[in-house]
Every structure is written in C-alpha cells, then in structure tokens.
C-alpha cells in the first residue's frame, strides 16, 4: 500500500467508525457513551479517591518500628488464582 492509499484507508476507516458510532442507539446526552461499546468499564470507588491528605494531626497509633514481623499471607492474594499461581509471600523484616 503506498502512502496515499494508506492515508486514504485511515480516513475511510475513521469515517466508517464515526458513522457507526453516531448510528448506534446511544442516548444523545452520553457524549462519553462510546465507552458502552469500547473496552470494559471497571467500576471504582470515586469517593475514596482523594488519597491521603496532608494533616497537622499527631497520632497515638503506634508504628512498631524495628520489630521483625513474619508475613503470613493474610491478604486476598491467597484466594486468587492468577495464571495458575496462588499468592505466596515471603517473610520480611521491617
């Protein structure tokens, strides 16, 4: 395919996709409605999104610094099978 034909094909492909997109029976107000038919939308928890704030508060919660700890897998990794691997964590020193 020469350069011109290639460019022409791109424009054609885009025109077709846009025609399909506009023809699709999506509510008109859904400008981002394309996500309905493109990719898998994952649902997150927006309200928890701010992340940690900066604060001037102290804490009486103790961080047990320097204590060695044994990591026994207590997380959800132990109930997940990812590509045939069950979660395994090694003990670490803090």
């Amino acid at each position: 395919m020469n350069r011109q034909t290639f460019a022409f094909a791109l424009a054609g492909s885009l025109a077709t996709a846009m025609a399909t997109a506009t023809a699709a029976p999506l509510p008109a107000e859904k400008m981002v409605g394309m996500e309905k038919c493109y990719g898998i939308a994952l649902k997150g928890q927006n309200d928890c999104a701010a992340g940690a704030g900066t604060t001037c508060a102290g804490t009486s919660t103790m961080d047990y610094q320097g204590n060695a700890w044994k990591a026994v897998p207590k997380g959800t990794c132990t109930t997940m099978n990812v590509d045939g691997h069950m979660g395994m964590l090694e003990p670490a020193k803090g």
Binding site: C48, G51, W69, A71, G75, C77, L89, K93, G94
Partner: peptide
C-alpha cells in the same frame, strides 16, 4: 494505605505495613 488500598488488600495489612 490510602493511595494503595487494593495493593494492601492483596497482601494483608501486616505485610503492607512492613
């Protein structure tokens, strides 16, 4: 913890703290 809640759930609170 607040930025990486899923990472923390995956390994558990103790491992994450370490």
């Amino acid at each position: 913890e607040s930025r990486f809640p899923v990472t923390r759930q995956l390994v558990g609170a103790d491992f994450f703290a370490g």
